[in-house]
């Protein structure tokens, strides 16, 4: 995910030294700013930038150091923006009707529902991530061009048309299936960032010797639980969508009835 593997080991201040606490706690104002900013729905970019500057000032950094941090932070985190490199291919195949084709293809398979399409994707995503193939999927490369249109195509076949409210719900769950699959699949693979972070941090700080394989092994129960919980919710999603569609039809009927008067 991110490369914070070389984050310095924290040195905890002795909590009994009360005079320290006030100063240490002051930096939490930045965290508070983030929570309030997101809660009142300010533009997240502004929230994050202001919180960063305030926290840095409270932490005793001067303006030059803060600017420097914004620069090095940007430069070292460019990897998270690499997804834009896949937009050109997604753009051209969408122009030529990929989403429509994905819908048609799913529409032919009568037994598929939005929830079942997403369970299938969840399973594929989790299993491939567990053998180290996390790069096989992703929001830009698979969810937008393939997974969401397929799930929506299944809903289209079932309901005849897909109201926006249902479409929104399918979108959220299409992205959710990708996240749950990759998060709780990749940790079963030994050479993944989070496992290596645990071993390097623990081995250097506490002089233990943990094998990545042991950690990966103990990630399996949670991986299974994640599949069961999320899979169950996706099965229920179909029922929720059915219910929402019935409500949608009822209100639509009422509206047309109202117009007739």
């Amino acid at each position: 995910m991110t490369d914070l593997t070389d984050a310095p080991a924290p040195t905890l201040k002795d909590p009994s030294r009360v005079p320290w606490e006030g100063i240490v706690m002051l930096v939490l104002i930045g965290v508070l700013l983030v929570i309030v900013g997101f809660a009142i729905r300010l533009n997240p970019l502004i929230v994050v930038t202001v919180a960063g500057i305030v926290t840095a000032l409270l932490g005793g950094m001067n303006p030059a150091q803060i600017l420097e941090s914004f620069g090095t932070g940007f430069a070292s985190s460019r990897s998270v923006t690499i997804f834009v490199a896949v937009l050109p291919v997604v753009g051209i195949i969408e122009f030529f009707g990929l989403q429509e084709q994905a819908k048609t293809l799913i529409g032919r398979l009568a037994k598929l529902t939005a929830g079942r399409v997403l369970i299938g994707y969840l399973a594929v995503r989790q299993i491939t991530a567990a053998v180290g193939l996390t790069s096989i999927g992703g929001h830009a490369q698979t969810v937008r061009p393939l997974v969401f249109p397929m799930a929506e195509g299944a809903a289209l076949r079932r309901y005849g048309h897909v109201p926006e409210k249902i479409s929104e719900k399918i979108k959220g769950h299409a992205a959710g299936a990708d996240n749950v699959g990759v998060f709780f699949g990749e940790d079963v693979f030994v050479a993944v960032g989070s496992i290596l972070l645990i071993t390097t941090f623990v081995d250097t700080t506490y002089h233990l010797h943990l094998e990545p394989l042991q950690l990966a092994l103990w990630a399996i129960p949670t991986a299974i639980a994640a599949f069961l919980i999320h899979g169950f919710r996706l099965l229920r999603l179909d029922k929720q969508l059915d219910k929402e569609y019935r409500e949608f039809e009822l209100t639509a009927q009422k509206e047309t009835a109202g117009e007739a008067k």
Binding site: P10, T11, L12, G30, S77, T81
Partner: peptide
């Protein structure tokens, strides 16, 4: 742009000692 800005925020939080405060 947001993911990169959040990474930067994480770095600033760490430098300013937010982690220590939360740990305490």
């Amino acid at each position: 742009l947001l993911p990169q800005m959040l990474t930067t925020l994480g770095i600033l939080f760490t430098k300013a000692g937010v982690g220590t405060a939360v740990g305490n």
